[in-house]
C-alpha cells in the first residue's frame, strides 16, 4: 500500500473513531453500573488492525484516546480509557493472529474483558478504595457482551469492505 494512501486511511479511521467515541459519550449509560459502555470505537481499532496492521491500530487508538478525552471528558477519563485501551490493545495484538477472520468476535470479547479489567484497576487506583473490586464480575460479563457485539460488527464491516475491493 502506498505511503500516502496508508496515512490518509489512518487519518480517516482516527476521525471515525473519534466521532463514534464522542457520540457514544452523549448517550446515557444503559445500565447503572460505572464503566459499562458499548465501546463502539473498538470496532475501528479492530478494523484498522485487520486492514493495516498492529502498529497502525495502536497509533489510531492512541490518538483517539488522547483527543477523545480532550473533546469529551476530563483528565480522569483519559486515565481510564488509556488504561483500558492499552490492555485491550495488547490482548488484541496477542490474539488477532490466533483466530481466523470470522472469529473476530472472540478476539473482541477477550479485548473487552481486558479493557474493563484495566479500567477497573485504574479506578481502584484513583479512588483508593479496594471495595470497588466488587464490580469485577459484572464488568467481566459486560466486557464479553459488548465485546462480542462490537466484534461481530467489525467482522461484518470487514466482509462488506472487502466486497467493495477496498
Amino acid at each position: 500500500m502506498p505511503k500516502t494512501r496508508k496515512l490518509t486511511l489512518m487519518a480517516l479511521l482516527t476521525a471515525i473513531a473519534l466521532t463514534v467515541f464522542v457520540i457514544e459519550n452523549q448517550i446515557p449509560a444503559p445500565v447503572p453500573v460505572p464503566g459499562v459502555k458499548l465501546g463502539l470505537a473498538n470496532i475501528v481499532t479492530l478494523i484498522t488492525m485487520k486492514l493495516l496492521g498492529k502498529r497502525e491500530a495502536g497509533a489510531v487508538l492512541l490518538v483517539r484516546v488522547l483527543m477523545g478525552s480532550m473533546f469529551a471528558g476530563s483528565p480522569s477519563t483519559l486515565l481510564f480509557s488509556a488504561a483500558g485501551g492499552l490492555l485491550a490493545y495488547l490482548v488484541m495484538c496477542l490474539t488477532a493472529g490466533v483466530f481466523e477472520e470470522n472469529q473476530l468476535w472472540i478476539v473482541s470479547a477477550l479485548a473487552g474483558v481486558a479493557h474493563n479489567a484495566g479500567q477497573l484497576a485504574a479506578c481502584v487506583f484513583v479512588v483508593k478504595t479496594p471495595g470497588v473490586f466488587a464490580y469485577a464480575p459484572v464488568l467481566a460479563a459486560s466486557g464479553v457482551i459488548t465485546g462480542v457485539f462490537t466484534g461481530l460488527a467489525a467482522q461484518y464491516l470487514l466482509k462488506a469492505l472487502k466486497k467493495t475491493k477496498f
Binding site: 476530563s74 477519563t77 481510564f80 479506578c123 484513583v126 479512588v127 478504595t129 471495595g131 470497588v132 466488587a134
Partner: peptide
C-alpha cells in the same frame, strides 16, 4: 457493591 462516582472520586460503601 459500593456506589461510585468516578469523576468525583466518591465511593459509598
Amino acid at each position: 457493591i459500593p456506589i461510585i462516582c468516578m469523576p468525583h472520586r466518591l465511593v459509598i460503601e
